[in-house]
């Protein structure tokens, strides 16, 4: 089976400028890989490129066996991105937002109820317009929209931000369960301790604009990079 993510000298543009400048990265199916680096290193760009939101203009880029340069739609339907924005409609209720996300991805609507319950989005919250929710509840709703779609690749950009301790634990549990079902996770987080506990490997990005991604195990002392750009 093809790796979940395979990048070879991948160049992705943000507007007219390269956000990724020749990145090599392999993420195998069922792995949780943590992307670390300073602000502006290109963590978000890496996740957005893998989601098919940034155009890859040079090099090779395959996600879930699909060529990102030729078939971004096939990739998008199979990935779930939890970004800085929640991709939510303020005038729709929590349930409406999650239902739209699931139906748009041709997902299983039966997953909506248990997902909302798991994230505490029940009772009046469920039928409240998202524009009236607190930051934490909005974040839970955005997470629910990703989880209920049951994507094969989870792209989580600072997923713990804005969540209380209980919700963070729920998130970590959901990630592990998804991986147990065969999903793959690429996450960027400054919550180092929590994210390291979750991840199998760490990918380091550096250089303002991302020029290289190296990966190393989080649970051993080995520091040999697995892939170097």
């Amino acid at each position: 089976m093809a790796p979940a993510i395979r990048l070879r000298s991948a160049v992705a543009l943000l507007g007219r400028f390269p956000a990724l400048a020749g990145v090599d990265l392999d993420v195998q199916r069922g792995e949780i890989v943590l992307v670390q680096g300073p602000n502006g290193a290109g963590k978000t760009s890496l996740l957005r490129a893998c989601a098919g939101l940034l155009p890859v203009v040079a090099g090779e880029a395959e996600v879930l066996g699909h060529d990102l340069r030729r078939n971004r739609r096939a990739v998008r339907r199979r990935v779930g991105l939890l970004g800085h924005a929640g991709f939510l409609y303020d005038d729709l209720t929590v349930e409406d937002n999650v239902r739209f996300a699931v139906r748009a991805a041709a997902g299983d609507v039966a997953r909506i109820e248990p997902t909302l319950a798991r994230l505490g989005l029940t009772g009046r919250v469920r039928t409240t317009a998202v524009g009236r929710l607190s930051t934490g509840q909005r974040r839970r709703t955005a997470l629910a929209a990703v989880v209920a779609r049951d994507p094969q690749l989870w792209l989580l950009d600072e997923p713990h931000a804005g969540l209380d301790a209980a919700a963070r634990d729920v998130l970590d549990g959901l990630v592990r369960e998804a991986v147990g079902r065969g999903a793959t996770v690429l996450l960027a987080s400054h919550e180092t301790e929590r994210a390291n506990a979750l991840a199998d490997r760490v990918a380091h990005v550096a250089g303002g604009e991302l020029h290289a991604a190296t990966t190393e195990p989080t649970t051993t002392d080995a520091k040999e990079p697995l892939h170097v750009a």
């Binding site: 989601a51 098919g52 939101l53 739609r73 096939a74 998008r76 339907r77 199979r78 990935v79 991105l81 970004g83 800085h84 924005a85 929640g86 991709f87 939510l88 409609y89 303020d90 005038d91 996300a101 748009a104 991805a105 041709a106």
Partner: peptide, 16 residues
């Protein structure tokens, strides 16, 4: 309505 909260990106990501 698509401009708020990155909804336009959400629409692109939806795979529709």
């Amino acid at each position: 309505v698509e401009a708020a909260d990155g909804a336009r990106d959400g629409l692109r990501l939806s795979g529709l």
